[in-house]
């Protein structure tokens, strides 16, 4: 009965990297010396990103840029969702701005943001030394394994909207979750063959850890001091305030409901038009509409206009779209169609 007693109002697409209780730093122990502060992962937010980009570039990943649409997590990027399907090998890494409208706190919570960055790595097939590679990447950004307690703690991942699940861990550094590590078993309702390994770093959280900062808005963005110092707050605080107002108070729900419907219809229409039997010619545009529907749903959810019972049916509608896109993807070149 325990499960029945719980009133679960949790956000549907479970955080790839929970923004809920993030962060917290030590500071002292992890300074890197050889690099200028603007490129130093323990001095600047951008340095952290660039260090990861370099590290994964050296592992043979294509370094992509963020997908140019609103998504809730790096997993939604077609470079992960779609490329995880089909037989072709794939290695990619990228930063993905992620939007969780419900997590907005008007810029007042030191640990919670409605817009934040994930660093996403996808390796297909998952290499045998993926755990070691991950630990090396932590070392590259200055985490000393002789000093810090790194742990792989069970965390099975599931995305109801993407029809995806995998097994893996949350990676802890001194009790703080800094990454998620997943072996994809299924995406868009389709078995992954081969299985891809996915790493998701919570960049703000990691940066706060290595910079020794308590409040996300105090992160040093550019690594400089004095007048030249730009903080995360300088860049994003106003945005957090404005988007919180939008997400919770002013987003036009009639419009959003309509846009959800439009995106859903357009996704289905494009899938139908692109379907040439053995081949499919318009998966990516259709998938964009799926992403759009998902984000519209998240906004409606933040506005509190979707009831508990309706929520499930919205999730299912998005999942139907992503499943259809996944099936169509397998009929394309990149999806491995003959």
């Amino acid at each position: 009965m325990q499960s029945e007693e719980k009133v679960n109002l949790a956000f549907i697409a479970r955080a790839r990297y929970p923004t809920r209780h993030p962060v917290l730093p030590t500071g002292n122990s992890m300074t890197q010396t050889s690099r200028p502060p603007s490129l130093d992962p323990s001095r600047s937010f951008q340095g952290l990103i660039m260090t990861l980009q370099q590290f994964w570039a050296q592992q043979g990943c294509v370094i992509l840029q963020p997908y140019d649409m609103e998504v809730g997590a790096g997993t939604f990027h077609p470079a992960t969702t779609l490329r995880a399907l089909g037989p072709k090998p794939w290695k990619a890494a990228y930063v993905q701005p992620s939007r969780r409208p419900k997590d907005g706190r008007y810029g007042e919570n030191p640990n919670r943001l409605q817009h934040y960055y994930q660093y996403q790595v996808i390796l297909k097939p998952s290499p045998p030394d993926l755990q070691d590679l991950y630990l090396k990447s932590l070392a590259a950004i200055g985490v000393d394994m002789a000093l810090h307690d790194i742990r792989f703690v069970e965390d099975d991942w599931e995305s109801p909207t993407l029809g995806a699940w995998g097994l893996g861990w949350e990676c802890w550094c001194d009790g703080m979750e800094v990454s998620q590590f997943t072996y994809f078993q299924q995406v868009a309702g389709i078995e992954c063959a081969p299985v891809a390994g996915e790493l998701t770093y919570g960049l703000e959280r990691l940066a706060m850890y290595v910079q020794g900062v308590e409040n996300v808005y105090d992160l040093n963005f550019n690594g400089l001091d004095g007048d030249e110092r730009i903080t995360y707050g300088d860049v994003f605080k106003q945005a957090e305030q404005e988007y919180s107002r939008h997400n919770f108070e002013h987003a036009d729900t009639t419009l959003l409901f309509q846009q959800f419907k439009d995106a859903e219809q357009e996704c289905q229409a494009l899938l139908a038009k692109g379907d040439k039997g053995e081949r499919h010619e318009m998966v990516l545009p259709a998938y964009d509409q799926c992403i759009k529907a998902s984000h519209r749903f998240n906004l409606l959810d933040a506005r509190g206009v979707i009831s508990v019972t309706e929520r499930q049916s919205y999730i299912l509608r998005v999942r139907e779209l992503s499943k259809a896109c996944g099936e169509a993807w397998l009929k394309t070149d990149a999806g491995g169609a003959a």
């Binding site: 209780h21 993030p22 962060v23 917290l24 730093p25 030590t26 002292n28 122990s29 640990n111 000093l147 810090h148 307690d149 550094c173 001194d174 009790g175 703080m176 850890y209 308590e214």
Partner: peptide, 13 residues
């Protein structure tokens, strides 16, 4: 460092 890290997480929690 481990204690300090855990304390920070617990403080936030």
């Amino acid at each position: 460092a481990i204690v300090a890290g855990n304390q920070r997480v617990i403080r936030a929690r």
